[in-house]
Design a protein around this nucleic acid. Sequence first.
DNA 1: TGAAATGTTGGGGCG
DNA 2: ACGCCCCAACATTTC
Length: 487
Amino acid sequence: MVVDEAERPVLVWFRQDLRLGDNPALHAAVTTGRPILPLYVLDEPGPERRLGAASLWWLDKSLRALDASLRRCGGGLILRRGDSEAELRRLIDQTGADQVFMNRRFEPEAFGRDADIAHALQKEGVNCQGFNGTLLTRPAAVLTEAGRPYRVFTPFLKALMPVIPELDHMPPPTRISTLGDVASDDIADWGLHPRAPDWSGGFDWSPGEEGASSALSAFLSRGLKDYATSRDIPGRSGTSRLSPHLHWGEISPRRVLQDVRGAVAQGRASQAQADKFAAEIGWREFSAHLLHQFPYMTERAFRPEFDEMPWRSDVDGLAAWKEGRTGYPLVDAGMRQLWTTGWMHNRVRMVVASFLVKHLLIDWREGESWFWDTLVDADLASNVQNWQWVAGSGADAAPYFRIFNPVVQGEKFDSDGRYVRRWVPEVRALPDRWLHAPWSAPAGVLSEAGVRLGQTYPRPIVDHGQARLRALAALKSLAGEPNSTEF
DNA sequence: TGAAATGTTGGGGCG
DNA sequence: ACGCCCCAACATTTC
């Protein structure tokens, strides 16, 4: 088939950039003036880690939203299932496309494979172009003076902020010229939404580009102005809840930071609040850069001495943790919020993670794996980095002796009990004074609140004081100086 | 982006 | 008036 050069279509390969606005790859494709083939390939099961159940739930909705947006511009999303390279080639063969535009992914496996695919296609005359649509900067852009990756967050953030490129004006295309009849799967056939049973009834999310913008607007008008303190109170809606939108690229971190700066300029929030929020976006960036540069982090401890950690095997403890019946109300509340809504407040994530790793001495990979399956914002770099941070084995990690007391954390950050009462109704009637430690309440208080320990609500599966000493002993046994940050 | 143990200080009760 | 003790409040150190 001989096709006029100017009529050849170009392919936009969507992955974790499920948006039309502020999308560098799509924008570059539109600029060619050629017909556009928007493609998503479900490479599942493929060479990468399989998506978790909550991620599949989200992907289902986000792809539908992207397809609807594309249809409003004149063309729909082409869905294919199979090996990424094979499906790209198939579509290229079917349509005569001679260019591929994609926003790069920076997880090591995906990054390497994208490069392999691009090289293979270029050899055959298909031009491939990669962009950065998901991070503030490419990982290689932030290095120490010695040319090495940062291992400590604060200097990383300081180096990152000045090198973030300006946000180019890339409005969503109003019209996409597409080819007529290109075969696409029906997303309903992919079965991404859970059935039998459908456990997603408690998910309260609006996946897609519009949902992302709404979440940002809501945060800018309500959450940002006292972010620094509200973000730590799990019983309030003080966080942005942008994480799943950012993960799937329904909004870009540059756009988020630009709008936050705009809110400050309009006097809707102070610079200090904005800086605190920017630092959280900075942690996302730090995670992505670390994983890109230290690919072994998904499997092994960032700090090798932690590979010797004497983890316990504890099937019952792990199950109690997952199911939210450890007997510590704040921990149980968090795990139930996760299961019910696909999300957990950040403060509580630290507490439940610390509990698994330090109180139960269970390998952080067990927790990471559970979060991966149940979180709608599951992100390889962030998930792995944060788990290693809590475990003490990560970059700039929590010192080994930092062991959260779930009772003290509850009293500090859920002092009115709003969070625990919402997710652990069994103890709802206890007065604040005893809410976070039901086992310490006098018998009369318990019976008045209708709590029968061991029957209506579990006794603690470990004693905090003993578990703390056990963890300290195990962590101290590691070779080297676990607390040192010197290299 | 801890918590617990230990140390210090100062007010107040009391002999 | 004074020393002594208790203990809360706060600071420091230790894990």
